[in-house]
Simulated assay, not measured.
Amino acid sequence: MRKPATIQDIARAAGVSTATVSRALSHPERVAEATRSLVLDAVRRSGYRVNRTARNLRRRRSGSILALVPNLANPFFSEILSGLSSVLAESGHGLLVGDTHIGPHPAARLNDYLAAGMADGVVIFDSRLPDGMVFEGARPPMVLACEWSRPNLPSVRVDNEGGAALAIRHLLRRGHRAIGHLTGPSGNVLTESRLAGTRQALSEAGLKLAPDHLFPGDFGLGSGASAAERWLALRDRPTAVFCASDEMACGFMGALRHAGIDVPGAVSVVGFDDIEVSAHLVPALTTIRQPRRLIGERAARLLLAMIEAGSSQAPAELLPVQLIERQSVAPPATTPLDG
């Protein structure tokens, strides 16, 4: 029977020290790519298996990271979680996902979970969690992703205000002057920052957001459809609407289509997020792309660095966004008088 390979065998086969092998397996980001390739090739040829359970016991760690998501049914989070999982897998960590909106007592469940030491770190996607879920008692390192309402926690987010301004400037370039905005839920940091970017870009053009062109929403499909009903009821309708999420844009466009209203013939629409379905709508949705996979990857690397350093603090990261032009925007059929 073949004797199991040891870390010393891997070191000899790769021509490196055992310490280098250990670093390449435990912290691959700290090892040069060429050296890491030598070690991993030796591991594959030898059939060596890392005893992660024993290693985690020695380090008093669970080997798991917990992601707290406000709604797992929301397609926005899928690619972010994929990026998060891929980086964690490289470091030998497993990913656990919890929906913060399920169950009657989420705070108690989370407290019990963390008190049992079942997660080495937490990535939070829901800024509306009560302080008791985030700050009570001893907590592992935590990172906010996408939303950043707590300045004392490290965060990875995109330039939401700048993205909204990109959307509005695009509509202005296409000739629109009466531009509406479909917001997210009241009090949400994303809602506020995207509304600020909208107002700023309009102000730069000498325009203001008319009160009846501001439609309340909640980032969901239903609120997009409700906004379409409000738009239809207006006597002086905006010729373009910037929606603070793609899901709302989908609901908005779908309701207008059922009412026989042409997009972009009667109204142009821009979304925010670039979820997968956006490119497959009819017409395909112009939107602001968030680098969702990169958000997950950066959040994972930031959290892993904090865990390794034994720190609860790290610098915030702000990622750029991109305008994706598709077919849901056209020049206005009629251009209303400015002012």
Rank of each mutant, 00 (worst) to 15 (best):
M1A: 12
T6F: 14
R12F: 02
A14T: 06
V16P: 04
V21C: 03
R30P: 00
V31W: 09
V31T: 14
L38I: 00
L38D: 03
L40H: 13
R44V: 10
R49G: 00
R55G: 15
R55D: 05
N56P: 02
R60T: 05
R60H: 14
G63N: 03
G63H: 09
G63E: 05
F77C: 04
S78N: 13
L84V: 07
S86K: 09
L88M: 11
E90P: 06
G92Y: 13
H93R: 03
G94A: 15
L95G: 02
L96C: 07
I102N: 02
G103R: 07
A108V: 13
R109T: 14
N111I: 05
D112L: 14
Y113Q: 07
L114D: 03
D120P: 12
V123C: 01
S127K: 00
P130Q: 05
R139Y: 12
P140F: 01
M142T: 07
A145W: 03
P154E: 06
S155N: 09
V156H: 01
V158P: 07
N160I: 02
G162T: 07
H170V: 05
T183N: 03
T183A: 05
G184Y: 13
A196D: 10
A196E: 14
A201S: 13
L202M: 10
A205V: 07
G206P: 14
L207N: 06
L214C: 14
F215H: 05
P216Y: 06
L221A: 04
S226T: 10
E229A: 11
L232N: 01
R235L: 11
R235A: 13
R237Q: 14
P238G: 03
C243G: 06
D246G: 07
L256R: 04
G260M: 13
I261D: 00
I261M: 09
I261L: 04
P264W: 12
G265H: 09
D274M: 06
V277F: 12
T286Y: 08
T287F: 04
A299H: 08
L302F: 04
L302W: 02
L303D: 00
L304W: 03
E308Q: 14
A309E: 13
Q313C: 00
Q313K: 09
L319C: 06
V329R: 01
T335E: 12
T335A: 08
